[in-house]
Design a protein around this nucleic acid. Structure first.
Lengths: 222, 222
DNA sequence: AGGACTTTGTGCAGTCCTTCACAAGCGCGT
DNA sequence: ACGCGCTTGTGAAGGACTGCACAAAGTCCT
């Protein structure tokens, strides 16, 4: 209807959301010396339907071999390229409580295309401390961040500070934010935000659990 | 996606996934003394379309008042009931590295319908330590967990341990698992698993960022 | 009291995603 | 060389979700 044929020349969001999972499984396979795999094997490892795997991967082009499967190393490269992980992206972490420290020390980040480029906190008591080889800077220093346009900002502060921090990140020129604080943040249009919220996930689990126990034998009678 | 093969006589998954966000915003409003709100206000606060808010809330029954909006307190109760948060669910945390400690100390859990009921770790060096008023138990003690069927298990271990821990949780009778480890886990059918994975979220952000910078002026060209 | 204004609840059309089912393609054994 | 079995890639059907547009229903002002 907006006939502007921006032909969605891209990969569906749902597929993009699954690519990291495939990548992870492929990494484990490669470590174990597995050379080749199939859509069925990948599907079971990730917990999705095999046809979904095939359709997802077909969006990257035809990299499988019929009758054989997918080459682990090749597929890893293809997915990495599609996700933009052929280069390293700098990440800054704001808020160095337990969560922030867990992230800063997270070996999985550097092995997955990211490098921690800065640590920031507003608390004078922690500024200057060293975490995983980096020194914690005062929050005000975020304004001088180099390569801000390339950098991903991670908010690991208490909920009350999340919006203020988000504003500062945006002001510094950051356009991609991962919000790990249990709060909703509002940002101007071009900025991309994703949320990681453990309490929400627990609540969703609670919903399913309650439903299961509340309606024990629904399948039997109409 | 949740193993529920019931006739879906319920609320759409997409709606359930948004209810925690509404609940959070309502809590902030209540604290600020706001008595009443509207679908538009809620929509802006959580970043979705107002019609979506109305349709979501209509799944819980008609609790709004036309021309006026929604009563904050009443709506809070309704959503809480739907999510099964009128009671407290026990949570056990496995793995007390930085991430596990962040969770154990997370004030947001107890205020959102959960109570930390146990801490477990396999490392003898941390067993016996006290975190947020609870003593860390050895992983083997998970087998004696009371009320396991009601309990939500949170995996906050390194990736390598995730599958083993998951097996132990299932063996102990836990049927809801939140996996915060950067690994995929496989569990038997009736167990419900959700994942929280920061590296994956960062990779998705990287994808969008790369796409934005790779195709700078698509709107202009033919 | 009545009309104007506001905001909800919802039928509907469109879009996106999933799943099925099967042809196409590849390697292997005979 | 040739068919057989295996696995991919994909058209099409079906389902789920979104966003629109509007009627229904309540409040407030005059």
């Amino acid at each position: 209807m907006p006939a502007t044929d921006l032909p969605r020349r891209g990969i569906p969001d749902a597929t993009v959301a699954r690519l990291p999972a495939y990548l992870r499984v492929l990494g484990i396979m490669a470590e174990a010396g597995v050379r080749s795999t199939s859509s069925l094997e990948l599907a079971q490892a990730v917990g999705v339907h095999p046809a979904k795997v095939r359709k997802d991967l077909s969006h990257l082009g035809s990299h499988g071999v019929r009758g054989v499967g997918y080459d682990v190393a090749h597929l890893t490269v293809e997915i990495s390229r599609e996700l933009g992980l052929t280069r390293d992206w700098p990440v800054v972490i704001v808020g160095l409580g337990n969560l922030g420290r867990a992230l800063a020390g997270h070996a999985g980040l550097s092995s997955r295309g990211f490098s921690v480029a800065g640590l920031f906190d507003a608390d004078p008591a922690v500024i200057g401390q060293s975490v995983s080889g980096l020194t914690i800077s005062p929050m005000s220093a975020i304004a001088d961040l180099p390569r801000a346009a390339d950098t991903v900002g991670v908010i690991a502060t208490p909920a009350a500070a999340a919006q203020v921090v988000a504003d500062q990140l945006v002001a510094a020129g950051i356009t991609s934010i991962l919000n790990c604080a249990p709060a909703a943040i509002v940002v101007p249009a071009p900025v991309d935000v994703r949320r990681v919220d453990i309490a929400s996930e627990l609540q969703i689990l609670a919903f399913h659990k309650q439903r299961r126990t509340a309606a024990p034998a629904l399948a039997v009678a109409p």
